[in-house]
Simulated assay, not measured.
Amino acid sequence: MNTDIIKIFEKDKFAAYIGAKLIEVEPGYAVVQMEINDCHLNGVNLVQGGAIFTLADFAFAAASNSKGCVTLGVNANISYFKSPQGKVLTAKATEISSHKKLCGYNVDVFDENEDLVARFFATGYIKNQRL
């Protein structure tokens, strides 16, 4: 696991604020988890879509930056399939493509039962700048 990347993403204040934790990172791949608590719930007591999106976005950020170049999201979309069950969400980001300046990543978000909750796709812009 790339400890330098982990140190960089441990500085992400918003991810820390929502409780997202980087579990694993390898080139083009990352796993992030978040324990669900009351601050993640919407008005009907279900996990708020923005919390799921943020978890997936953080996994994308870790995976897309894992090769050592600053990569910024330029487009992202998400499809929600079901309300999560249990108290933990896990996002797994996998590189689909990577070229000189653009990359694409799928992020699958699973609940505690390992059921697919959402699928996130993001396009990143790879800057000519090292982390």
Rank of each mutant, 00 (worst) to 15 (best):
83 S>W: 00
102 L>R: 03
122 A>W: 06
119 R>C: 09
80 Y>K: 03
66 S>A: 14
72 L>K: 06
27 P>W: 13
54 T>K: 06
77 N>Q: 11
47 V>M: 02
130 R>P: 00
117 V>R: 00
121 F>I: 09
108 D>T: 04
83 S>F: 00
56 A>R: 04
87 K>Y: 07
31 V>N: 04
71 T>I: 06
36 I>V: 15
131 L>C: 14
101 K>M: 14
45 N>H: 12
129 Q>A: 14
37 N>C: 02
97 S>M: 12
45 N>A: 13
120 F>P: 01
55 L>A: 01
19 G>K: 00
120 F>E: 02
62 A>W: 03
45 N>M: 12
23 I>E: 10
115 D>A: 13
131 L>E: 11
12 D>H: 02
110 F>G: 00
89 L>T: 03
90 T>L: 06
46 L>N: 00
59 A>M: 10
90 T>S: 09
66 S>Y: 04
15 A>K: 02
1 M>N: 15
32 V>W: 02
122 A>E: 10
115 D>H: 06
82 K>I: 11
49 G>V: 04
1 M>C: 13
60 F>E: 07
50 G>R: 10
50 G>T: 07
101 K>G: 04
53 F>S: 02
93 A>V: 05
81 F>R: 08
18 I>T: 05
115 D>M: 07
93 A>M: 07
79 S>Q: 11
61 A>R: 05
